[in-house]
Amino acid sequence: MLRNVLAATFALALPLASAAEEIPLDPNEVSVQDASGKTVAVFSVKQLRAEFPQQTYDTRTPWTSDNEKIQYRGPLLANVLAKAGITAAKEVKVIAFDNFVSDIRMDEIRSYNPILAVERRCNENESASPHCPPGQDFRPISMVEKGPIFIVWPFDQLPASYVPARNSIWVFFPVILRATQ
């Protein structure tokens, strides 16, 4: 709910934001920026999948029901930031493809280890689809499913007060990760 409120607030400020932010045109890439807004690294979905150890979370999200768990896979957000040289930041401002903005504290990232999910497990109905050929367990996440990149947290490990108060940290289609002091 808070995400919605924040988003609504943001929507009001959109003309200003869009003037200030240059949103990348491809949601399949995420740029890491330093505090000055300078891009220090760009990772494609393919790189995120190939160049980092992959972590899998079998979890629900704030938008799914209690027993509806989905397996998401991708690199740890902390690893992606570290590879781009971001280690001393206090917060990360995450900007999404739809101009949504969320601030995530580094202590939250260290405590709950979110991932930049780039894949989700195929379910039984999808085994026939071209995304899930035999022998492949995971497939890319579509935009309707909040992909292609989705910041996923282990829902059960988050404090109870985070739902729905901190739903805004579950950013879908993030395109910019900006370190702030």
Binding site: I23, L25, P27, F97, D98, M143
Partner: peptide, 9 residues
């Protein structure tokens, strides 16, 4: 060029 992003969204 931004029209593609808006169409996708």
């Amino acid at each position: 060029a931004d029209i593609d992003r808006q169409m996708a969204l």
